[in-house]
């Protein structure tokens, strides 16, 4: 079943088109990455999916139901983590989660349990009685997530949840995302950090100027721009190099040998690093270093649009 289905969605602000005839579907159980530079239309799309903005044109369905016609159902199914911190500074962590979860119809003991559970999930259970002003940026971000997941939504939409935090908190959040996904939630994750998206997302859409310019798994996206990867192996000497055998390994296209390095160009979709290394070891070539260069999503974006994801 499609968790989220967007059909020819357009949003105009006056004359400016922020989202341009965008269609997309997210399957249940995916971690769907929404990758694009700032201002590409990610947030606008997300805001339309969460009914924060109305669409100029097009249709959005959550679990097969139109979100304007079945507004309550759709809202109940979604947990939304906004881009900016959306917590009350004058309420404790627990009260924040408790309040927002309560809006989703949880009551009494169940509400309490869910709130505590959500705080445990993001690792803030021991700080539940503290006020957010005493929190670090990363902790606030985690609280921001806890407020959105206490009601156990089927679909969690995260809008740049890791902006401006330390690497440790970021890892924590990325792990939480995986855990949430394992717990049964479909996740939509927007980011302009290509590493994050590459790391956790099973399906990725690259968006620019309000349009999806490419969509697919990591491998599929990379295959758009190249089908080659480079494996560069540093060795003590290339004297005993089994050239012909190397070339016969599945996927290998060319092998070049200089004095101390071997450059192998290979089909990107075949994982043949192990047989290559085994062969070299077996024929007595001493390996000093291996470096495999695969194209990154950044390269994909750069190749397709001519710009980098982060325009500084």
């Amino acid at each position: 079943m499609n968790m989220l289905e967007i059909k020819q969605l357009t949003k105009k602000f006056g004359e400016y088109t922020a989202v341009d005839n965008l269609s997309l579907s997210v399957q249940e159980g995916e971690i769907f990455g929404f990758l694009g530079p700032n201002g590409a239309g990610k947030s606008t799309t997300i805001h339309m999916a969460t009914s924060l903005l109305s669409a100029t044109k097009g249709e959005i369905e959550i679990m097969g139901r139109n979100i304007t016609k079945h507004s309550r159902f759709a809202k109940q199914a979604i947990g939304f983590v906004p881009q900016d911190l959306a917590i009350y500074e004058d309420m404790t962590a627990y009260e924040n989660v408790h309040f927002f979860a309560g809006l989703y119809g949880l009551r009494g003991a169940e509400l309490k349990r869910s709130a505590i559970e959500a705080l445990e999930f993001v690792g803030l259970a021991d700080r539940q009685g503290s006020y957010p002003k005493s929190f670090s940026g990363g902790m606030k971000r985690r609280l921001n997530i806890a407020c959105a997941i206490a009601h156990r939504p089927k679909l969690i939409i995260m809008d740049e949840p890791t902006v401006g935090i330390d690497p440790q908190s970021r890892n924590y959040i990325l792990n939480s995302v995986r855990k949430l996904n394992r717990r049964g939630s479909t996740i939509i994750y927007t980011s302009h950090y290509m590493e994050e998206v590459e790391e956790i997302c099973s399906q990725i859409a690259i968006i620019d100027h309000g349009k999806i310019i490419a969509e697919g798994t990591k491998a599929e996206l990379k295959a758009i721009i190249t089908n080659q990867k480079n494996i560069s192996i540093t060795v003590r000497s290339t004297e005993r190099l089994p050239m012909e055998q190397l070339k016969s390994i599945v996927g290998v296209n060319t092998v070049e040998a200089a004095e101390q390095t071997i450059n192998i160009s290979s089909a990107v979709e075949i994982n043949n690093l192990n047989p290559i290394i085994q062969l070299l070891v077996a024929s007595g070539v001493e390996i000093r270093g291996v470096e495999a260069q695969e194209p990154s999503l950044e390269t994909v974006f750069l190749t397709l649009t001519g710009r980098t994801l982060r325009d500084e």
Partner: peptide, 13 residues
């Protein structure tokens, strides 16, 4: 200004 309006609005209220 606290962005909590977004949270309130996405909830089924």
């Amino acid at each position: 200004s606290r962005h909590t309006d977004l949270r309130l609005l996405v909830s089924p209220v």
